Amino acid sequence: MPGQPDKSKNLYFIALIPPEDLERDLWEIKKEMSARFDSHAALRSPPHITLHMPFRYRSDRQESLIHSLLDFARKQKPFEVELNGFGAFPPRVIYVDVIPNGPMQELQKGLLDFMKKEHNIFNANYRDRPFRPHLTVAFRDLKKSRFDEAWLFVQDRTLEMSWSALGMYLLIHNGKNWECLQECLFEGF
């Protein structure tokens, strides 16, 4: 039927996910934004930095996708990820700001090229905008009328976190939420 998703394809995306201790702290921020500003969409995925936007891929080729991403990841090197404060894409998105760095930019660009070449997937970035690493805490269902209030709530908050990215994750949508399907470790891990 036109306009209906193809049930033989799953919805995936690829991301960096912080280690458990930082992930717990970031979940608390997401939950606080949800409770205060009635924005729940960010709770449907773990705290993450998107490297490749959601894409549909044949479910019968999932193992092939996983194996190719494992091979791609083995050729990458670990790098530091630094979070510093908050940012926004008005009028709906509030995020924890990620300090861009060369290794993260190179990983993301290499992944996009790899996905085009190996899997014929071209929807790598949102509306052809350049890669702007961030960790979303409120979006889509944050009402425009509440955006200013939510932004005032976080804009001056101090938040500094860092971790060594030792791998990336393939996530799959289960029909309701995003789940980690496969961790793809970088070289030497």
Rank of each mutant, 00 (worst) to 15 (best):
D71F: 02
P91A: 02
K77W: 07
G87I: 10
V98K: 08
P90S: 06
N101K: 08
F79G: 08
V96N: 03
P100Q: 12
V98C: 06
P90A: 11
E82Q: 08
V93I: 15
N84F: 14
K75I: 03
Q108F: 06
A88V: 04
L83A: 00
L69I: 10
P100R: 14
V96P: 10
Q105Y: 08
A73H: 05
V98M: 09
K77Q: 15
N101T: 10
D97V: 00
P78R: 02
L83V: 02
P100V: 11
G102T: 13
P90R: 11
V93L: 15
K109N: 07
N84S: 15
E106V: 12
Q108C: 10
F86I: 10
R92M: 08
R92L: 06
P91S: 12
P103E: 01
Q108L: 08
E82F: 05
R92N: 12
F79Q: 09
V93R: 01
R74G: 04
P103K: 03
F89K: 05
M104P: 03
P78C: 03
V81A: 07
R74I: 01
P103W: 02
P91E: 06
P103T: 02
G110V: 03
F79L: 10
F86K: 10
P100K: 14
G85H: 09
V81W: 06
V98I: 15
L70K: 15
F72S: 09
P103D: 02
A73G: 00
P91C: 01
G85Q: 10
K75S: 14
D71G: 09
N101C: 13
E80H: 03
P103N: 01
G110Y: 00
K77T: 14
Q105V: 11
L83D: 03
P78V: 04
V98T: 06
L107G: 00
R92I: 08
Y95T: 02
L69A: 11
E106T: 11
D97Y: 12
S68E: 11
L69E: 04
E80S: 15
P78H: 05
V96L: 04
G85M: 10
E106I: 04
Q105D: 05
Q76I: 01
Q105I: 13
Y95W: 15
S68G: 09
E106C: 00
P103V: 12
N101Y: 02
E106Y: 07
I94M: 01
V93P: 01
F89I: 12
L70I: 15
Q105A: 14
P90W: 07
G85F: 09
